[in-house]
Simulated assay, not measured.
Amino acid sequence: MNGRSFWAIGLDSNIYRSAGVGAWVYVGRNAQDLAASSDGGVVTVNRTTKAIWRKFSDNTVEA
């Protein structure tokens, strides 16, 4: 994981990642909450099912 990435939940409830240059990249959907650690690890809670989702790599594939 890249500890230099920015993570955000958009107004559309989707999750986006940015390295600080270029456009935001879609990486997940239907998020209620998001937590990112300094080592780049990301955990979020699904808005509908309340399931916990963890991103294990720094790619744009939805986990």
Rank of each mutant, 00 (worst) to 15 (best):
R17E: 08
A23L: 14
N46Y: 12
L11I: 12
Y16D: 13
N2G: 10
V43Y: 03
G3V: 02
N59M: 03
S38D: 06
R17V: 00
S18D: 10
N14P: 11
T44H: 03
W53L: 12
G3K: 03
I15R: 01
S13Q: 13
V25S: 11
S38G: 08
S18N: 14
R54P: 02
V25H: 08
V21S: 11
D58H: 05
K55F: 04
A63R: 07
V43Q: 11
A63M: 05
W53F: 13
R4Y: 04
V21C: 02
L11T: 15
S37K: 07
G40P: 00
G20D: 00
W7C: 01
T44L: 09
F56V: 08
L11D: 03
V42Q: 07
D33T: 10
D12E: 05
Y16T: 13
L34Q: 00
S37H: 04
R4K: 09
D12H: 10
G28E: 06
Y16W: 10
N14R: 14
M1Y: 06
A31M: 13
T60V: 01
R47V: 03
G3C: 00
D33Q: 04
A8M: 15
V42F: 02
D33S: 13
L34C: 05
N2L: 02
T48I: 12
G10V: 12
V42R: 01
R29G: 11
V45C: 11
G40D: 01
F56P: 01
E62K: 05
D39R: 07
G28S: 13
T49F: 06
E62M: 04
D33H: 08
W53A: 10
N46P: 14
K55N: 11
D58C: 02
A51W: 03
N46R: 15
E62Q: 06
T48S: 11
K55D: 09
W24R: 05
V45I: 15
Y26W: 06
V42I: 04
A31G: 14
D33N: 06
L11R: 13
I9F: 04
M1D: 08
G10Y: 08
